[in-house]
């Protein structure tokens, strides 16, 4: 899905996580990644709750994390990136 290296996957920066998620969203929604900003509201990009589940599912696979059900919400790209990044850090502890 992305060209991330294994090192990127294991210890990515918040920006790298955000970029990876943006690529996933662009691929799924068939839109230009350039238009996806950290502050972009996922709903406004056309994602519904099921689309978000799909993105989270792919992110879980990609980064080897597990996002708890109660934290899967439609918010901005930045919010999702922070959540995923936090889970990666916790996992790497």
């Amino acid at each position: 899905m992305t060209s991330q290296t294994s090192n990127d996957k294991q210890n990515p920066s918040l920006e790298e996580v955000s970029n990876t998620l943006a690529k996933m969203i662009a691929d799924k929604m068939d839109i230009d990644q350039v238009g996806i900003k950290p502050e972009s509201d996922l709903q406004e990009l056309g994602l519904d709750s099921l689309d978000t589940f799909d993105i989270i599912f792919n992110a879980e696979d990609h980064f080897g994390i597990k996002v708890p059900n109660d934290q899967v919400k439609i918010t901005t790209l930045h919010d999702v990136a922070v959540l995923v990044h936090q889970l990666i850090l916790e996992q790497n502890k």
Binding site: M29, D30, D51
Partner: peptide, 8 residues
């Protein structure tokens, strides 16, 4: 269809 439509 768009990819978003057919992939679901």
């Amino acid at each position: 269809f768009t990819k978003h439509t057919y992939s679901m």
